[in-house]
Design a protein around this nucleic acid. Sequence first.
RNA 1: GCCCUCGUGGCGAAAUGGCAGACGCGCAUGCUUUAGGAGCAUGUCUUCGCAAGAAGAUAGAGGUUCAACUCCUCUCGAGGGCACCA
Length: 727
Amino acid sequence: MCVERVYNWFMSEAKYAHREIESKWLKKWEDEELNKTDLLGAKRPFYNLMMFPYPSAEGLHVGNMYAFTAADIYGRFKRMQGFDVFEPIGLDGFGIHSENYALKIGRHPKEHAQITQENFYKQLHQVGNMFDWSKTLETYDPEYYKWTQWIFIQMYKAGLAYRAKSEVNWCPHCKTVLADEQVIDGKCERCKSEMVRKELEQWFFRITKYAQRLLDNLDKLDWVQNIKTSQKNWIGRSEGMKLKFGKYEVFTTRPDTLHGATFLALAGKKDRFTGEMVINPATGKEIPVWEAVYVVADYGTGVIMGVPAHDERDMVFAKKHGIEVVEMEPDKSMEKYGEKTTHYHLRDWLISRQRYWGPPIPMINCPKCGWQPVPEKDLPVLLPDISDYQPEGEGKGPLAKHPEFYKTACPVCGGNAERETDVSDTFLDSAWYFLRYPSIRSAHSGQLPFDSEITKKWMPVHMYTGGAEHANLHLLYTRFLTMALHDLGYVPFEEPFKRFFAHGMIVKDGAKMSKSKGNVVNPDDYIAKYGADALRLYFMFLGPIDQGGDFRDAGMEGMARFVNRVYRLFDLPEAKSEDIVKAEQRLIKKVGEDIERRHYNTAIAAMMEYINLINGIGGWTKEQKGILAIMLAPLAPFLAEELWFKLAHKDSVHLQAWPKYDPGLAVQERGVIAIQVNGKMRDRVEDGPDVEQRALQSDKIKKFIGGAKYRTIFVPGKVINFVLNGK
RNA sequence: GCCCUCGUGGCGAAAUGGCAGACGCGCAUGCUUUAGGAGCAUGUCUUCGCAAGAAGAUAGAGGUUCAACUCCUCUCGAGGGCACCA
């Protein structure tokens, strides 16, 4: 009695010691370089990339871990299927987002970057992903931004970077201009301040030249539809005609309503009649030329024809100002007055930022020779260490206060010249990082940003995982830059990411996490309390990862229980069971298929069911335990390794091949099939020979059929439906 | 206004033309434990019924089909993208 009690106590206390176990395997994997990919020797390359984090706060956000776990499980699964998987990680720590945070806490951005780098990498080690730690990059590293500057120069030489005066979006808080894509509802994407319009001379990338190709290629991409739709809307192709009204040219998608045009409107600051009249080419009548607030200056030609009868806004304007309204029917023959043309909503990408924390734009302005690129041998243009790094506004960045930085010699004539003092947009840093990872420390990494042999072998990226919020920012810029580099002969492909998987957002108790609400989940706390594996499993069990999930502490407890349960069940004695054999075959099939389509929640559910079965039977074989450990490996890498070694194996579970199943044994074992009468489920019967005859003998079925005539629909293995006549 | 996605128990969800609610959380009852935790067993969509059972149920209404959470049409609701874009 006493012994039994002690045994029971011991069994219940045989808890999975996650802290010791996880740190033990981490150390071993890193000592043995388990996750280092042999890039040159790889036979079946699989580049598994996830959007690198920007360290805006002091630590890794659960949202990052959620996304990385989702991506890592897929990468681990691919490795077990025999692919050479390369899974790198780095930090996007250059740019406004990191700088704003540094400014807020009053720390120099460079110092802040050093601190966050240490923190982030420490946390990223703990989560148990198969990162190749020999290939990390940070966008603020001069070895990296040297090449960001190099890319700028190639763009300039190709005529894809240009300087122009234009009315731009100015954020009064961040004290810099922003690209159109970084303005949401008239507010700054980073700090939510109201934007103002400002006339400034700035550097632009000519993304509009690629509008049509960016649109056309969308059809070839294996991306979720809503991201493609979002890009399509953003590019905003609109087909129409150019029509001439005297000296004015208008763009319209409805040339067939030309004969109803009773006024012309130019973009203006207020509604005002110009005093001018022009001739409507279709009717020959004189119509007035107005300035109108509702006309947008930089779309189309900035001039519209007003057709009150066919456009609500034109009607409102006409009524307000007493302009004539002509009712008419649309007439295709009007198209003879115009010339077909296409317009895009997409604008050129504004690259300049009047800030400190970014790569200095590598251009020099000479009073005699004009703008010249910095000679490539002089790269990088180092960002100097300065103490007055705060932005002050009025169109110039902090570097403009430092003549020791900007005073230089013209690379052409050698005379006195000045460097550009703006830095480039952070989205330029992240638009090419995927090209750099595999080439880090390659033979040619010193001469070019990316090794052509490695690039050809490893790209385009096979699987990219990240947030949908980057649809019109990062994902569009990256596509554009890759296309441009392709045209310049640097990369052999046009599209950077063959497949893109968009994960959802993780919230806490139904609310978006934020510091002000005090509901921010720190993954470290949960890893310390429950272990990285339990947290990984919990994230993935919340629901489909493209839908995101709601983090609740109670659910987390449940998953820790599951981890313990699996661990305990490995102590069950050796026993053979026919039920387990079949269940195992089905499990192998299901888990493999579910991971492939990234339905991790149902893969985990299937394993739970299997574990419940094992628990009920009370024993299983060593081989069965081994197969389960292998299937757990992508989802719970530490637990799986611990279990695998418990079975006296000597090599890592992560190097094992994904198990195969026998399709004959893995069939859905129902045993029973449903019997319906008129499509309603009425009874069940054992599957097998003469199933229809046996179904008809059921009392319930007899009751429902009565003496009526019927016909039979039989779906083998699933259902028999008796359809009574008259139905 | 245009476009996209979605709507299933108390909760997260599963099933994508073939037995609606797998799996988990929570809850209830019992066993076990010095106690707490953990563990084990059973139950848990709604209504009627002691039960066996019956009827109903996937936002709502219609349709296609032997059969609809799943496909089609409309309505309502939620989330997202674009937008005085001519």
